[in-house]
Write a protein that binds this DNA or RNA. Sequence first.
DNA 1: TTAAATGCAAACGCTTTGCAATTGA
DNA 2: TCAATTGCAAAGCGTTTGCATTTAA
Lengths: 141, 141
Amino acid sequence: MSCHKVLQEKGYRLTPQRMLVIEALHRADGHISAEEIYEQLHSRYPYSNISTVYRTLELLKELNLVTETDFGDGRVRYHVAEKGHHHHLVCHRCGKITDLDESALYPLKDTLLHDYGFEADLRHLAIPGECSECRRKGGQS
Amino acid sequence: MSCHKVLQEKGYRLTPQRMLVIEALHRADGHISAEEIYEQLHSRYPYSNISTVYRTLELLKELNLVTETDFGDGRVRYHVAEKGHHHHLVCHRCGKITDLDESALYPLKDTLLHDYGFEADLRHLAIPGECSECRRKGGQS
DNA sequence: TTAAATGCAAACGCTTTGCAATTGA
DNA sequence: TCAATTGCAAAGCGTTTGCATTTAA
């Protein structure tokens, strides 16, 4: 877990709270919300506080150790950066989230760069739509 | 302005508040937030209320007269559906929003459909990144 | 006339902040 | 030791809601 090293090297303190937040982030195999991280932290460290979670996440973001993804459901989710980037197909019907490899968006990234001079940051993309299952079931909600 | 017709045909009342919300949406050449709509409404109708704006937007969304886009800045923006769909390149440095034609995302839409069976809803997509100008200026913020 | 729509005020959910107390280095 | 970090409580923000009053049809 290089997160610990980075924090130490940069002179940040390795508090138990921070270590537990980092652990929770690593344990989550996908994306995890601040609230979910807090639940895990709080269960082992009853006096901890959610503002510590937010502050830790803020710090880890600045150090590029975690990335943030907005799934459009009113809360942001976090993901360990070193696990690599991937994108998300979010089904607006059943809520299922499908991971999409980074490479699937390379053509788009190229197009945007060449035609618009826009350097797209596709680390956090969530694409809404309807998943295969829900399409099969068809029909309106 | 077919919004009015649709509302009437479906049996909804054409209140002055609703008409002003619709006007504001049409006047905005891009995307406009509830707050911005409310400012315009309030300046002509001092006793109006922002909850009316939200309720009207909710209704117009249900009727597919407006679409919603989340630019990731903590507030949602609205856009008249009949003006056609387009996407947005959002510069995280200067905040500039560049419109992107729907067709630019056709290849992606096809890929997602064929490879993942996912029917992407790309009406509301906002792609973060760095615009050409900021790239030219280069450097870290 | 009357159901639909509004204004108001209060609440909501997620996130941020000020500040005094605590703690890792 | 002492600045960095925390817990707590309160606020901040965009949005939603309950309810009595008003109003378009």
